[in-house]
Write a protein that binds this DNA or RNA. Structure first.
Lengths: 197, 197
DNA sequence: CTGCAATCTTGCAGTCCCCGCATTTTTTGT
DNA sequence: ACAAAAAATGCGGGGACTGCAAGATTGCAG
């Protein structure tokens, strides 16, 4: 279904643009790299770049556009006897495992993103993009409305856990286990943020 | 000291630009308003616009640049026998009270921001901008390092509480009490996000 | 394998954001 | 009133992004 020559080429071009953007920006910084250079490095015309990514920043982040939806789906698929926190925590740890398994891509992404406040903001926004869907799923699970406090707060908090875990992963130069860092963060959250020591 | 004619004029111009940006964007949407129009509406040259705001988006948000620092200072000024959560919660509620007292400004801001994903991301980023300072203060209070899990998580969570409270304030068409919404959010956080009901 | 339709790529022209630099105007301290 | 400091302005330019229309590729039916 998804494996026509057309689709494979599209995926390859998309990835080539993302990798080119990532590596160029890693070397020179975001502002010193132009869209034209990225396009040239990926062997497409500058105009084609915008057929794949709406902005230069998006190409650098290179996030899968339907990933946010899949998070909501993953939460919905958790057994119904789990509390919302348990379900969200399990999904987050699983997601962390996938990201850590991805080889050098996420580490490189994190290094690049961490060096630019703009990209940092965009990444955080990307994690928050699916929040409404996640909140809706949580609302369904806990029997509350999607505009209620609990689902909104929980969806937002899960984004913070993700960002914090990633930040600390970077701080350890990616020697730590990302799933462990994620689980640790959720542990503190589930305990009500008690003062350490 | 701070009350020369010069400084008053600067503040007035800044506010004029912000209000002009806010009202124009509220009417027509972010993309349909140019910097030139905002500058004209505020009676300054287009070039001068950029002496006050680095980007068009910043003019629409119109956030006080030294507010983020003052949050960290407010946390540092809380009595030392409070737990970090208590201190942060108190500061957040106090901040909410100030924002709610500001008349129509924050409601208008929220309406405009909520209509644009880009602005939403920028606002979230702005709330997160002071996170590092807050995390540093918290680290000092709790005797941990600024790269440790606890201060990072707590600083991030406080941003989520702010965003969630603002979102729900908007959802009630600003009839609810923002400080109450803020306190409610922190109550759930401090309790470890228990499933409601 | 050939023609046709759908899709993708590309070039072109244009708008607008944002910046550095030099010049002019306004404010301040004396 | 005058010189120094600071702000406003004008000009020129690089680069992101878009709509449009033409050209190239791919999928499919015969």
């Amino acid at each position: 279904m998804t494996s026509g020559l057309r689709d494979r080429k599209k995926a390859a071009t998309r990835r080539a643009l993302h990798v080119a953007a990532l590596e160029l920006v890693a070397e020179r910084g975001l502002d010193a790299v132009s869209v034209d250079e990225i396009a040239t490095a990926a062997d497409v015309s500058p105009r084609t770049f915008f057929n794949y990514f709406p902005t230069k920043d998006d190409a650098v982040l290179g996030l899968d556009p339907d990933e946010s939806g899949s998070v909501a789906a993953a939460v919905a698929a958790r057994p119904g006897d789990e509390t919302p926190v348990e379900a969200l925590r399990a999904v987050a740890v699983e997601r962390a495992a996938v990201m850590a398994r991805d080889g050098e891509l996420w580490p490189l992404r994190m290094r690049v993103v961490d060096a630019s406040p703009v990209l940092l903001a965009h990444l955080a926004a990307a994690f928050g993009r699916g929040d409404h869907e996640v909140a809706a799923v949580l609302a369904a699970r806990s029997g509350t409305g999607p505009q209620d406090l609990y689902p909104l707060l929980l969806a937002g908090v899960s984004g913070v856990a993700m960002r914090t875990a990633l930040h600390r992963w970077l701080a350890t130069d990616f020697t730590a286990s990302l799933p462990d860092l994620m689980d640790e963060a959720w542990g503190v959250l589930a305990a009500g943020l008690p003062a350490p020591r």
